[in-house]
Design a protein around this nucleic acid. Structure first.
Length: 309
RNA sequence: GACUCCGUGGUCGAGAGAUCAGGCAGCAGACUGCAAAUCUGUAACACGCCCGUUCGAAUCGGGCCGGAGUCU
């Protein structure tokens, strides 16, 4: 049986993915699936540059607004929902285009996580996080990992509390050191074709700066305030998103609007840089010159072209 | 006009005779169920200009330029 083909359009923030995705989907009769860790939250529209109502009318979109901003979403949940969607659409005879810049989500789709079997243990995390807060706590935490898995302990910096905790969590749950866990699988039961938007760094940074300004004009502050009024905690995972955490500081009076804008721009630039670094690990990605006249044709070539089966 | 203070790499900012604090930006990287998150590494080889003191000055002295302030 032939593998189901899954197409992906990725690239850094503000690279023009949404616009291109709509054109591609319309021309080829595809439906769009969001591959963005923040567009999944309801009510976070302006700050995540979520496709608008009218854009969603042009092409059916999936996996948007699937989580309440008061709850925490996760890669694991994403992968499950995405796989279910892929199968469902395949049955209907529809083809999907995944669009988004969250590299980890792409990785989770293409290489089902080797240790997907170990779910988050919130109590343990809370406990260990508390430990890390105390004076000398990081050292203690690190030692705890060194006891369970010296190899990983040596690899992780003392300050990388998050990964240290995860390594402890997995080692404890499976009884096997984190470093001995099965490696990520390369195989996926689907066939993936990935294209990535590519801009010269300077141009991308300009686009980012511009877009952040636009978001603020469109009412980002009001959007954030509305979410807080609905009872979304400023500490919520959703509120750690770029544009949101900074606006919260502005609304609290800690920052001027100007300062908030600058910080969002800076953070977004950093983020774009990290996206590039992360994507580079993925082989078989076709990079598209985003400023090219022939962008649409290039993208179709990358996504539709014959690929060996 | 007199007096005081200040002038450090893209930027903010320590240093007060001989070895370039640090922050930010920039650049590079990591990443296995929080990822728009989290973490790590790093260049420049700079001290307003001129003259001097000194084995040796960004650091001391003099002059000049520029900025801030006090005074008649």
């Amino acid at each position: 049986m032939d593998k189901i083909v899954c197409r992906v359009l990725t690239g850094p923030t503000a690279s023009g993915k949404t616009e291109l995705s709509l054109i591609l989907a319309e021309r080829n009769g595809w439906e769009i699936a969001c591959m963005d860790s923040m567009q999944v939250y309801r009510g976070m529209d302006i700050g995540t540059a979520k496709p608008t109502e009218s854009e969603r009318k042009r092409v059916p979109h999936h996996l948007l607004d699937v989580c309440d901003p008061r709850d925490n979403f996760s890669v694991a949940a994403y992968r499950e929902m995405a796989e279910q969607l892929i199968r469902e659409k395949a049955r209907e005879g529809k083809e999907l285009l995944f669009v988004g810049g969250t590299g980890l989500y792409l990785q989770a789709l293409m290489h089902p996580l080797g240790m997907g079997a170990v779910p988050a243990n919130e109590e343990l995390r809370g406990e260990l996080n508390q430990l890390a807060e105390q004076p000398g706590g990081k050292e203690a935490l690190h030692q705890r990992l060194a006891f369970l898995d010296p190899e990983t302990a040596e690899r992780l910096p003392l300050n990388d509390v998050r990964r240290t905790i995860r390594a402890i969590e997995v080692s404890l749950a499976t009884g096997i050191p984190f470093s001995q866990q099965p490696p990520r699988e390369d195989a996926s039961e689907f066939e993936w074709r990935v294209a990535a938007m590519d801009w010269p760094r300077e141009q991308l940074y300009e686009r980012i700066n511009l877009r952040v300004g636009q978001m603020v004009h469109q009412g980002l502050a009001e959007e954030v305030q509305g979410l807080l009024r609905q009872g979304v905690s400023p500490k919520a995972q959703s509120m750690q998103a770029l544009g949101y955490k900074e606006m919260i500081l502005y609304l609290e009076g800690a920052w001027t609007l100007e300062k908030a804008i600058e910080e969002i721009q800076k953070g977004t630039r950093h983020y774009a840089k990290r996206q590039g670094t992360f994507l580079r690990r993925e082989k078989n990605v076709v990079y598209l010159d985003a400023g090219s006249e022939t962008l649409i044709a290039d993208a179709e070539g990358a996504l539709c072209g014959e690929t060996g089966k």
